[in-house]
Amino acid sequence: MMWVFLLSDAFTFGSFLTAYGFIRFKSANWPDPEHVFDAAPLIGHGYPLVFVGIMTFILIVSSVTMVLSVEAGHRFDRKGAAWYLFLTIIGGLTFLGCQAWEWTHLITGDPAHSHVTITQSIIEHKPMAPQFGQFFFLITGFHGSHVLSGVILNLVVLIQILRGDFDRIRNYNRVENIGLYWHFVDLVWVFVFTFFYLV
């Protein structure tokens, strides 16, 4: 059932990304992603794609810890499954923190680098196509809310692992199911990363 749900979710993200691609294709003054996404905490501006690279790496690593948690579940290793799921939650929260920083940065901007103020572009239609910000916040926001619900689901299952629920029924399938969901979120990020930050 999880697979079918993920398929339907893939449709939603697919239609968002297609609409985005279409509008981008049609817009004249689409901003250059290397200029918009060139900031990172502590080191400032002029480092294109560094921060989003870190975010991508965090999400891939959290996928790996999730695989390890599922694998521990197969061996009925309660402590291992709980530990790796805990690491996955930490990864998810770190990703959300990074995204919060990025959003804040793009919304409030920086007087010295006015080209990064996306909200201004939405309100004043300059210096870039207003649709850029609209699609950026829609799609990364939709993805971020998936990460958030994934973190909450992981927390619930972590509590259930620690309570020994799955040892009692000798079945760790639920860990596997939330694992599928978590990998899907990673999968979506792979596409968002390509089409927003790279292309």
């Binding site: 996928s63 695989v67 999968l187 792979v190 596409f191």
Partner: peptide, 11 residues
């Protein structure tokens, strides 16, 4: 290619 490795191996 990345999507393939995530779905084939991780999922």
């Amino acid at each position: 290619a990345k999507a393939f490795y995530i779905t084939a191996y991780f999922m």
